[in-house]
C-alpha cells in the first residue's frame, strides 16, 4: 500500500483550564488517501473540530498538542517551524469553517481578501490573479463573478458567503480540504446545493476532504469512509455504508437509533440514556460504558482498537460479531 496523503497517529490535544486538563482529543489515529472523502462524525464535545484544528496547527494556548504525529506525505507537521507550516497551510491543506460570516473580513471586498490569500503563496500579475479569482468563484457557483469581486461579504447571502469561503480554500488547488460543519448554518435547500458542488469539485480535482459533521445523513451521502468520535476518541471507523448499515460500536448504533428518520413516526425513539461525560473527568476504561446498554465488568478497562479488514472499533463487546 502506498503512503496515504495524511496519516494521523495517536494525536492528543489537551486544554489546560482552572479545573484541570480537558482531554479534547485523546489518542486519535486515522489516515486519508488521495482524493478520498473521510467523514468525521460526533456530537458536541466529541473532539471532531479540535481534531481538524490540530491537523493544521490552529491550536492556541491554553490548548496544546500533547502528543502524536500528523504526517502529510510522510512529513510530520507537529513541531514543524511556524514558517514551514504557513507554507503548507492554505496551500496544500486548507480549511472551511462552520460560520462564513466569521471567516470573511467584513471591511475588505471579496476580491481584496481573495487576492491576499492568493499572494500568501503565489506571485501572479494583476490580470492573472483576476482570472484566477473569477475562475474559482465561478467553479463554486457564484453568478457574475467579475462584478461580485467588488462586493463586501455582507452583500452576500449565507450560502453565497460559504461558497466564497470554499473558493478561498480551493484557491491554490490544495491536496486536502478540512471542512468543519460547512453546511450546518445553512438552510436545507442551500445545503443540498453546497453538498453537491463540494462533492463534484473534490472528485474533479482529486482533492481529499475531511468532512466534519454531527449529521449522519450528510456524512452518509458524502464520505467514502467514516470515523465516529466520542469523548475525544475514534470509537469506530470503516467504509461509510458498511458502518451505518451494520455498526460494531454501541454508540454508533445509539446515534442511528436516535434519528427520527429511521424510526416509525410517533413511536418512542431508542435514545441513548444520559449525557456525554465531562472531558475533565473521563470515566476510567471505555468512556461510553456509563451510557452503554451492553456494558459489563470488563468495560472498566480501556478497550483496545480492533481492526478487521477495512473496519476498526474500540469495544470489548462489538455488535454483530461473534463474541
Amino acid at each position: 500500500m502506498t503512503t496515504p496523503l495524511l496519516e494521523v497517529i495517536d494525536l492528543s490535544t489537551h486544554f489546560a483550564t482552572r479545573e484541570g486538563v480537558v482531554k479534547a482529543v485523546n489518542g486519535v489515529s486515522f489516515s486519508v488517501g488521495r482524493g478520498e472523502i473521510l467523514g468525521l462524525v460526533g456530537e458536541s464535545g466529541s473532539g471532531k473540530s479540535v481534531t481538524g484544528f490540530s491537523l493544521i496547527g490552529l491550536i492556541d494556548p491554553p490548548g496544546r498538542i500533547a502528543g502524536g504525529t500528523v504526517k502529510l506525505e510522510g512529513r510530520d507537521l507537529i513541531g514543524m517551524a511556524p514558517a514551514a507550516l504557513r507554507a503548507i497551510r492554505g496551500k496544500r491543506i486548507s480549511m472551511v469553517f462552520q460560520d462564513p460570516s466569521m471567516t470573511l473580513n467584513p471591511v475588505l471586498t471579496v476580491g481584496d481578501q481573495m487576492r491576499l490569500a492568493l499572494r500568501a503563496h503565489q506571485r501572479l500579475s494583476g490580470p492573472e490573479a483576476q482570472r484566477r479569482l473569477i475562475d474559482v468563484l465561478s467553479r463554486v457557483g457564484i453568478p457574475d463573478p467579475a462584478r461580485r469581486l467588488e462586493a463586501y461579504p455582507h452583500q452576500f447571502s449565507g450560502g453565497m458567503r460559504q461558497r466564497i469561503a470554499i473558493a478561498i480554500a480551493l484557491l491554490h488547488g490544495p491536496e486536502l480540504v478540512i471542512a468543519d460543519e460547512p453546511t450546518t448554518a445553512l438552510d436545507v435547500s442551500i445545503q443540498a446545493q453546497i453538498l453537491t458542488e463540494m462533492k463534484s469539485l473534490a472528485r474533479e480535482t482529486g482533492t481529499a476532504l475531511i468532512w466534519i459533521s454531527h449529521d449522519l445523513a450528510t456524512i452518509s451521502s458524502m464520505a467514502d469512509r467514516i470515523a465516529v468520535m466520542y469523548a475525544g476518541r475514534i470509537v469506530e471507523s470503516g467504509p461509510t455504508a458498511q458502518v451505518l448499515r451494520d455498526p460494531r460500536h454501541p454508540y454508533t448504533r445509539g446515534l442511528l437509533e436516535s434519528l427520527p428518520a429511521t424510526a416509525t413516526a410517533g413511536t418512542e425513539l431508542r435514545s441513548i440514556p444520559g449525557t456525554t461525560p465531562s472531558l475533565l473527568r473521563l470515566p476510567p476504561g471505555c468512556p461510553f460504558a456509563p451510557r452503554c446498554p451492553g456494558a459489563q465488568a470488563l468495560c472498566a478497562a480501556e478497550p483496545p482498537e480492533t481492526a478487521v479488514g477495512a473496519r476498526a472499533y474500540r469495544c470489548h463487546f462489538p455488535l454483530g460479531a461473534a463474541a
Binding site: 443540498a192 452518509s220 455504508a241 448499515r245 434519528l259
Partner: peptide, 19 residues
Amino acid sequence: DSVPKLVLEDGAQVHFKPI
C-alpha cells in the same frame, strides 16, 4: 428532495436535487 437521507448502500451515487 433537498434533505440528505441516510445512505446505506455501498458505493451508492447520491444525487441531490437542490432547489
